[in-house]
Design a protein around this nucleic acid. Sequence first.
DNA 1: CGTAAATAACTGACCGGTCAGTTATTAGGA
DNA 2: TCCTAATAACTGACCGGTCAGTTATTTACG
Lengths: 208, 208
Amino acid sequence: MLPAGEPKFRRRKADRPGEIVEAAMQVFAEKGFAAARLDDIAARAGVSKGGLYLYFDTKDDIFRAVVEQAIAPNVQLARAMLAAHPGPFPDLIRALAAHVGGVIQTTSIGGVAKMVIGEARNFPELARIWHDRLVGPMLDTLAGVIAAAQARGEVRPGDPRAYALQLVAPLLVGVIWRETFAPVGAPAFDLPALIAQHVDTYLGGIAP
Amino acid sequence: MLPAGEPKFRRRKADRPGEIVEAAMQVFAEKGFAAARLDDIAARAGVSKGGLYLYFDTKDDIFRAVVEQAIAPNVQLARAMLAAHPGPFPDLIRALAAHVGGVIQTTSIGGVAKMVIGEARNFPELARIWHDRLVGPMLDTLAGVIAAAQARGEVRPGDPRAYALQLVAPLLVGVIWRETFAPVGAPAFDLPALIAQHVDTYLGGIAP
DNA sequence: CGTAAATAACTGACCGGTCAGTTATTAGGA
DNA sequence: TCCTAATAACTGACCGGTCAGTTATTTACG
């Protein structure tokens, strides 16, 4: 039983937090907060359970870090897109839909969203972070864009916040479907096709 | 220490299961499946924990009973409505929206739905039941109605299932919002107003 | 070497499920 | 009608397993 060449572990203080958060995001997205075991997270991150506590104080703390990491880049991107786009309203919506459609299909943000929805009641602070940092600003920005379009006569009268929610809802439900019902044998939706059709009818219905 | 007038408990074999399921529905809707303690359910049902096991074998079993009880009546109603309604497509959609809006606001079905979404990965059978008995048939029926309307030239071409999902999505997201973000201080949506506006734009967008 | 990073064995609280005993209720005999 | 025996609904203390968090110890590395 000689430990021979390979050392038992490496000291990599700088890289650990990121690796742990990445592993935790996967496990949380799979199991939800309560059912995620710290042993699982540690194993997937290539660390012992005790090692987690060198970088985070509690399980909640890890959850917070995951949400922050999952949130920040995407909020940034969508915000920038809405702010930068100059064209007429339909073009803006189509560009946004294309971007969001890509994000939805390439990241595990769907699983994280499902996790937030599912655990909101037991961990209200998580719902608060998710809302204050992601959903709230996004909806406000979108509502602002819609209100501006209304002022220019490009969109019919009505509550801009509600219009914003109407736009986003089918995407969210599509993701929920994929995460919830498709795994148990329900027929899947073709997300890009669904989005395309939705944008068409949405723009048709919202025009004056 | 005389036990005097009030007896310690009553024997009410007939009423217990219903009371337990009702209590369990509340606790599950509040906490989700995993976080719901049998002690809580028992206390709310006015029974001891052991008493639960006189009527149900496992926690899963109670969950199943709750889902069945929450599902059956509503599926029945919505199905009947779709089958019975003769009028033109827009009228049918408006009637359906009004009905569903009422159900959403008077029952705890929203909480149960959130629970199913949140726990689907850890308890796939629940997602299966929810889909096979409620969501699936509902979506199929709706898609059938839409396809029929397309055949009559009342609805523009496109995937009927996707159109059905587009119709339902804002309602679902509205409920999720109410259950998830409103409790942590997010501005609430006026559900009836949201539904009304959505039906208008939906019908406008889906017309040929 | 010294010390900080990392491990692995450990603790204690919690919770689903069990079961021996308790109590309300019913049935039957005087 | 009253009393007693039999029954089954119900209770609550308990057990075993799980898991978040702690700590004593080992190991890598400047």
